[in-house]
Design a protein around this nucleic acid. Sequence first.
DNA 1: TGCAGTGTTGCTTC
DNA 2: CGAAGCAACACTGC
Length: 308
Amino acid sequence: MPELPEVHTTATGLQKVLPGLKIVDVWTDYNSSFYAGKDNIKDKKYFKKFRIQIIGKKVIGAGRRGKNVLIHLKDDFTILVHMKMTGHILYGTYRRVKSRKSIKSIKWDPVEPETLKDPFNRFIHFVITFSNGKCLALSDMRKFAKITLLKTSTIDESLDTKHLGPEPLEKNFTFEVFKKQLNKKPSGKIKTVLMDQSLVSGIGNIYSDEILWKTGIHPLKCVKNISNSNLKKIYETVKIILRKGIDFGGDSMSDYRNIHGEKGNFQHKHQAYRKTGEKCSKKNCEGIIVRIKVGGRSAHFCSTHQKI
DNA sequence: TGCAGTGTTGCTTC
DNA sequence: CGAAGCAACACTGC
């Protein structure tokens, strides 16, 4: 799912429902077979401590840093959730049932709202139950998500967030800041640089394709070869496209859902991403959208109006 | 049927 | 040093 607009939509939704609720239970079935480390809940010991530390705590609020969802608790605790490729957070009433296949296996069935009834429910791997009987559930098909517990007062020094670049929708994200960040990688390809979380946080594959289509810049163009006026154009377009993603409730081309299980609509607004072979929709442009690999990711762009 | 591809990131290798 | 490859997992589409 999750680029800035999707994470933003999730965080905004959580902020409306979570404040004041008390955590009464926490459950997960992420195992520790891979990639566990000792720094997230996939490690059994970490989860045990995590559980003890958050049970009984009240939620103060929810927010976002880059592509991370932040859930702030009383007593200076913050739960950080990075949803990676396929994670999305849901909020509603769930029934805990034992799967017929295995006695050990637990499933979470949504009771309400109706919009939570979705095939992705079978990928719920993390659940927090609140004092009002409602649950926060993380559906995560590929199990790449990362959940950690931080001290709220030292979030900016945490390994998960300290490398993150400026927030593109904040007031202090000026053109000068943007230019300074990009110039740290003068020979970087613009698409790769836009997606580099240490330079600007929140942009991923979908939105970088859309930003470059709108600015008419080729994804392989090197930062140092982009004129000041085109950099300015990219800077403005980053803000416009991300804001548009938020306005449309995020992108549900794949499995993203808002916390009530509803799809966003930005996927209907794509001009480049996954439009391979289609005619470019820019006015008076006769180009075709093509796909190439850039930095190991697929980039979609118009071979006619996006100049290198 | 089988394999390339998928929104992310960070570690390893060259 | 940077760039590229790959792994973590499960599913879709060609």
